[in-house]
Amino acid sequence: MGAIGIFAEIIDNTISNSLGSMVEFGLKVKEASGSELVLFAVGQDMKEKEAGLKAAGVDRLVLMDIPGVSYVQTDKLSCAVAELLDKVEFSTILVPASHTARSLFARVAMKKNIGMTADCTDLDTEIIDGKPVVHQIKPSFGAQIMVTCDVEGDSEIITMRTDDQVVPDLSGDPVIEYVEFSGADSAIEVVDFEKNDSVNSLHSAEVVVCAGRGAMDEERFDMVKKYAEKIGAVVAGSRPMADNGWIPFENQVGQSGTVIRPKVALTFGVSGAIQFTEGLKGNPLIIAVNSDEHAPIFGFADYAVIADMSEVLPELLK
């Protein structure tokens, strides 16, 4: 039986904040399966990073040191990871669902013909015929759909949606080993970094007002904006609002947009598709206004106002 692998992504020569959450997922599988838990990483200056990777509960650290490599060089890194997988037998490989890690592991999956499931939010491990089977749970198209996937074969790659606020407990004492990289070139060269000057105020906003499909009307959206101004909130919206040009795409909250962590979020005419709710993190107080009492947002919000926003907003503006 192979080990459970956790890929610790090194971004910009720093251990990614996804580590804490990834270790939690790994420990959950370990608890149910009893398999060895191995944390693996590829990058430069790995010796200096050892202490930051010694997560409690991890049995073994497998590292590969590649001087000068950048995390965006997925052509080169995929060769490195493939070599590492030749040395360590994994039955399950957990990968954070970042843009670079999913690109890297899609390449690895193809190289090794390993089945890959994307963007899981939870895992459920059960023992079938003496072997652990990891059921992969993920949201899929539409508001109401959650799918469970299984991967066939001796190994599987699963990308996980992480909560990057989880701080890892680094009091572990894993065995540390290094694997040599035989080398490969990259066609990608990093020449510069241009920092964004304009910090999106949405990220630091304590109170956010989110408009959804139901607010796609001049008069209604106008009231939503006035109300946001009155309470000092930033206006954001769901994907249909951005798709139709009501809000700039930077202010789109959700899976394909921005993830925000406000203290309070008020939603107006947002149905509450999981593509949207995935963008509201940090457990804010959520007040949802929607005229459809069956809207999924009411299964997510703390407070429900089941009414037409055009009746509530004038009172809020008084």
């Binding site: 059921h135 959650m146 999981i274 997510f300």
Partner: peptide, 27 residues
């Protein structure tokens, strides 16, 4: 190799506490 085994409803039904009363009271 990656096979969907079950599809289920993600909606847990309404769990939010409903605010009731006149629109003035709700506001």
């Amino acid at each position: 190799l990656s096979i969907v085994t079950t599809v289920s409803s993600a909606s847990a039904g309404r769990t939010a506490e409903a605010l009731e009363g006149s629109f003035e009271e709700i506001a």
